[in-house]
Design a protein around this nucleic acid. Structure first.
Lengths: 194, 194
DNA sequence: GTTAGCATGTAAGGAGTTACATGATTTT
DNA sequence: AAAATCATGTAACTCCTTACATGCTAAC
């Protein structure tokens, strides 16, 4: 009944903005966006859809095969589409370019829908994300240095591996940022002032 | 009151096996092991300690400065140590080398305590983890191929980045496995065949 | 003397999972 | 006719976080 602040609704709104869909299909697309790891379950998805329906963000779509007799077989399925309110909600969530947008849980979903996101918001999110990871990199570097002193075999390789992962992430973000700046200027990628 | 199956108790048992500690310090060490991301809160830690105490896995340690008047200042703190039962519990958790041990949430903690883990279990866990990631790699490769057809700008870079991350992870695990096999044979780590 | 940091703890609630219940259709 | 896959939904429960409550000591 409560907040429904999760990544879930953002992802659902984004997917339904592309085209109307029913729950079962939504779930499959969702798991592709949310990273293949930790697949969303029906026990999460259906209650979330119910909530969004009650809020008026989505509505049942008359079957696209409307009037046509056979729904091509299978059990009656409920196709949802975005309402006008839902589109507004989606836009306001996508235009958020504060910390919420670059935290671990949300960043991937925001990136997946960058195509629908304001150019300025894109840049702020990417830069915020990079700062976040630079902080983490600093912490990890300190931690690796300290662990090295304590000589802790496996913990050390684990932390080093984690550090390398973060460094790779930072490089990747820097590339994306450079690309955004190049295309955002309307000028070809001349890349003046970092 | 229930299961307490999380990573948390494994990590706590592992840390207390190294040396007795109080909650506040435990939390800091925990956040280092659990990856710097998603720091464990006191609202998780203290109830978990209470549970473990009730189960007899840990016990209050007489202050190391026993008898000595000043606890060096600060509020009275409760130092916990592993009991014999706690050590047994820890060992049985570390010797688990099934799927539980190589799932996303647990693998890191298991690796961090590999120093206390049976050689055979180490190898099974590493190999299980690698298979897991190879499956994920296959899924992602398919997904990237399909997305490429649909030409979905940002979703594509996201998935490609994810795929490269998984590929890197697999290479890393292969190195660790090779090292285990080399040292497990009783021969010095001459590191033949990369 | 007030702020900051150490230290422990509880109550309420958010976000999600598992397991179950139901039912239709296609493939074997 | 059995098994697999598509499809929707609920109830109970797990794990964790946030926000609060308490209190002690060191530093400004």
């Amino acid at each position: 009944m409560g907040k429904r602040n999760g990544v879930l609704i953002l992802a659902v709104l984004g997917l339904l903005h592309e085209s109307p869909m029913h729950g079962y299909e939504l779930r499959k697309r969702l798991n592709s966006i949310l990273g293949t790891f930790h697949a969303i379950s029906y026990g999460s998805l259906y209650p979330a859809l119910k909530d969004m329906l009650a809020r008026g963000w989505i509505a049942e779509d008359g079957p696209a095969d409307a009037g046509a007799p056979a729904l091509s077989g299978r059990r009656a399925r409920i196709v949802y589409k975005l309402t006008a309110e839902g589109k507004e909600q989606l836009q306001s969530m996508l235009d958020e370019s504060g910390p919420e947008a670059w935290e671990d849980e949300r960043f991937d979903v925001h990136l997946a829908f960058f195509g629908k996101t304001d150019v300025d918001a894109r840049l702020r999110i990417l830069q915020g994300r990079r700062s976040r990871l630079e902080e983490r990199r600093a912490t990890l570097r300190g931690s690796v240095a300290r662990t090295r002193e304590r000589l802790d075999d496996y913990t050390l390789v684990l932390q080093q591996h984690g550090l390398e992962g973060v460094e790779r992430e930072v490089r990747w973000l820097s590339e994306l940022i450079a690309n955004e700046q190049a295309s955002g200027d309307g000028r070809p990628a001349s890349n003046e002032r970092g």
